[in-house]
Design a binder for these strands. Structure first.
Length: 764
DNA sequence: GCAGCCTACATTTTT
DNA sequence: TGTAGGCTGC
């Protein structure tokens, strides 16, 4: 037997060896949380608990998979039998088994956010509401928030406070939209992400026999990342654990970063209340094994500013390590170059692999400058998140076919594929079918079956042909595995053919992506871990993937990782760059405007800092292109908030900052130029010159072409455009946010241009 | 019904 | 800056 107990510290051991009864582990960053959780599960199994009777809920499928592997190393193959996965995937599984009880059939579809929003868009249109007032994002947010607090459509309509809220926001009909949305999802035999939790609650509330079955089945319930669970999730676990009361939650209130989607830190307080203070065992893991002292203490200096938090003191016995470096760049592109050179330099000096580095940013849109800079320096990188494989049009198209083949009630899939490839069924006809279906509270498929009652002529024939096609696919479901069905559908639907005939570069890439999807299905079928190999099983696994779950595009793991801070939760890297440290960007202006929760932004910063093991670098830019507009930026208040003793302003890589770092004199004297610096600087200059190679279309811009702000652009001015060359401004029109200029070019004639700063420069 | 142009518009994080 | 949705002309 593996001796894993002796290597643990005292609180870790307590947590691992705690037997029955509620247990709450408050685990500071880097305190060995995953280790404790895996050992605890191993310990339970070794002490006679049947793995089938352990339910472990994690935040991502990847976390679940890793934990399973680690447990397997201790207890062997038995680990495979543990019920482990994300809330959404585990309860989707249970809902499939018990679907009948709540009026669904087990082949229900899972609507992703795009499907939900598209359905809402149709409903708002059908109800003749103004989509400028009823903005889809807002409506969706309201509905999602309600579901996460277990407020169904009728409760929503009958709740005077909610109604008053909507009235004052001048959107009194959100309740009606919600109701219609719920009806349509139900008619479509579809659940959105929130429904997977909401309906599990309904299932357990209305069917005590079913609840009872699972209550007895699960002898132990574990919840990882407890701080990020919402009320709906918490209630499910509470119900499931009500019989044995063997519930173990692990979390860190300081790392709660999902309040925006309903996560509720109060769950941590409720936990004690619900199980009785005297019954709950609380273990605090406060020793950090991951990071240097400087990093741990700098992180502490940030989080100490938050008022709402549990008492806890994270400390480390690790060495001090280097100070945290701050880089100032003049623009977002320069920030990209400086960060890429810094990575290059560290990598060379210390002979480190690429995968020791990560670049963390607040928003996905920030990745561009870093991608460019890394590419130019031939440093391999990968991006987590952003537009993922499964969000690509061609992939969603095929998946919609697969979904509709499995579940013909799926209205959103229907709308996507009914006229794809083009078969002469226009928007008018599709909208008509939707409306009739909604009126009769039937699914679209029922209407399609009797299409001749509603539609005549060419469209009717086309729809009949479509229905026959789907029926022919459906026949295959019981005879063939997911891969065979999917390949047949890709060919017979005409999707592959259409892409194959598109010989453009993009068309080729799309064709390959579809092949790649088919490969993924093949892998799914061939994977012995998957008990069920049906198309439905594959679709479920795919629709609940998280961004962190995306598989490597190739076998090469030695890459710099670029991702949002949210995506970095639970990961660690030797060297971390936190970039875009500017006011309004991080902390995000949006967040401050909409929810005014500076503390959550600060926790996010805390998460980012504590990902670093050895070296942490932060950077900010003084100017940034924001939706094509040049924006002046101030350094983030978070830079000021951090205890300045841990910071080192990098004068090596930029001009002196206006920021007053108030540093001790000895630190300043260190910041003089070095040999490696001149290397970095020349590298930075070299990459600067090779920028924008694609602008040479019909005009070669002047060698020093650098876009200037066109804010002061006026008639009569002489300008240079990156593509059209030199010219004179004839007229400038400002209309709302759009700025247009009529310019007479010397060689390209007169043009009216939507002003794009990146391409235009005022000639002095 | 469809393609292509134009215009207006929205920009946080993700199961 | 990108893109989604509207509009126009076939």
């Amino acid at each position: 037997m593996v001796d894993y107990i002796s290597g643990l510290n005292e609180p870790q051991r307590e947590a691992v060896m705690h037997g029955n009864g509620p247990l709450m582990i408050i685990a500071g960053a880097g305190s060995g949380k995953t280790r404790v959780l895996t050992y605890r599960i191993s310990y339970l199994i070794e002490n006679g608990v049947d793995p089938f009777r352990i339910l472990a809920l994690t935040f991502t499928n990847k976390a679940a998979g890793e934990m399973r592997n680690r447990i397997e190393k201790v207890v062997g193959t038995e680990a495979r039998n543990i019920w482990m996965g994300t809330f959404h995937s585990v309860f989707a599984k249970i809902l499939r088994i018990e679907a009948k009880a709540i009026g669904y059939s087990s082949n229900f579809s899972i609507y992703d956010t795009d499907d939900s929003k598209s359905l809402l868009r149709s409903i708002i249109k059908e109800m003749a509401l103004d989509d400028k007032i009823y903005r889809v994002n807002h409506v969706f947010g309201r509905i999602s928030g309600a579901k996460n607090r277990l407020i169904g459509p009728d409760d929503y309509l009958n709740n005077p406070i909610i109604q008053a809220d909507d009235e004052s926001a001048r959107m009194p009909h959100i309740g009606k939209i919600y109701k219609q949305y719920a009806l349509r999802c139900f008619a479509a035999n579809a659940m959105d992400f929130d429904d997977l939790l909401f309906n599990t609650n309904v299932l357990f509330r209305d069917h005590l026999d079913i609840l009872n079955k699972y209550q007895h089945k699960f002898q132990h319930v574990m919840v990882d990342e407890f701080q990020d669970t919402n009320v709906s999730q918490y209630l499910i676990t509470r119900k499931l654990a009500a019989v044995h009361e063997n519930i173990c939650v692990v979390g860190d209130d300081a790392q709660s970063i999902y309040a925006f989607r309903g996560a509720n830190i109060e769950n941590i307080l409720n936990f004690q209340r619900d199980y009785g203070k005297e019954n709950v065992k609380i273990v605090k893991l406060e020793q950090n094994y991951r990071s240097t002292k400087n990093i741990v203490e700098a992180a502490n200096s940030i989080i100490a500013r938050n008022k709402n938090q549990l008492e806890k003191h994270v400390f480390t016995d690790n060495e001090d390590g280097p100070l945290i470096e701050v880089i100032k760049a003049s623009s977002d592109n320069e920030e990209g170059r400086l960060v890429a050179s810094a990575i290059f330099e560290t990598k060379m000096n210390e002979s480190l692999p690429n995968n020791d580095f990560a670049i963390l940013y607040r928003t996905n849109a920030q990745s561009r400058a870093f991608e460019e800079a890394l590419r130019k320096m031939s440093i391999k990188y990968r991006i987590i998140g952003g537009l993922s494989f499964y969000q690509r049009k061609e992939i969603k198209d095929l998946i919609a076919y697969l979904r509709f083949t499995v579940n013909q009630q799926d209205e959103e899939a229907f709308k996507r594929i009914i006229n794809l490839p083009k078969r002469g069924i226009g928007d008018t006809t599709v909208a008509k079918i939707s409306v009739i279906a909604a009126e009769k509270e039937d699914s679209v498929w029922e209407i399609v079956a009797e299409i001749n009652k509603h539609v005549t002529g060419r469209a009717a024939l086309a729809i009949e042909a479509f229905a026959d096609l789907i029926k022919s696919f459906k026949l295959l479901l019981d005879q063939k595995d997911a891969f065979e069905v999917a390949s047949h559908i890709a060919k017979a639907s005409g999707l592959l053919k259409e892409l194959y005939e598109d010989k453009t570069v993009e068309g080729l890439a799309r064709y390959e992506n579809v092949q790649e999807l088919l490969n993924a299905i093949k892998e799914f079928v061939d994977n012995p871990d998957n008990e069920e190999k049906s198309l439905g099983a594959f679709l479920q696994s795919v629709s609940l993937l998280t961004t962190a779950d995306e598989k490597e595009d190739d076998g090469d793991n030695d890459k710099v990782t670029l991702m949002t801070i949210h995506a970095a939760k639970g990961l660690e890297f030797k060297n971390i760059h936190i970039v875009g440290m500017e006011e309004d960007l991080f902390p995000s202006q949006m967040m401050l405007e909409s929810r005014n929760d500076l503390e959550e932004e600060r926790r996010l910063f805390y998460v980012a800092i504590t990902r670093a093991e050895k070296r942490l670098t932060m950077s900010y830019a003084e100017t940034r292109y924001h939706y094509g507009r040049l924006k002046m930026c101030e350094p983030s208040r978070f830079l000021m908030e951090m205890d300045q003793r841990y910071l080192k302003l990098s004068k090596l890589r930029s001009a002196p900052s206006r920021m007053d770092f108030d540093k001790p004199e000895r630190d300043r004297s260190e910041s003089t130029s070095t040999g490696s610096m001149s290397f970095v600087r020349s590298l930075a200059q070299r990459t600067a010159r090779t920028q924008n190679p694609q602008t040479a279309a019909s005009h070669t811009p002047s060698p020093d072409f650098a876009p200037t702000s066109t804010a002061e652009l006026a008639a009569g001015q002489r300008v240079e455009h990156a593509k059209f060359g030199f010219g004179t401004v004839k007229q400038v029109d400002i209309n709302g946010t759009d700025r247009k200029a009529t310019i007479q070019f010397e060689t390209a004639g007169e043009k009216v241009l939507l002003l794009s700063f990146a391409k235009l420069r005022v000639v002095a």
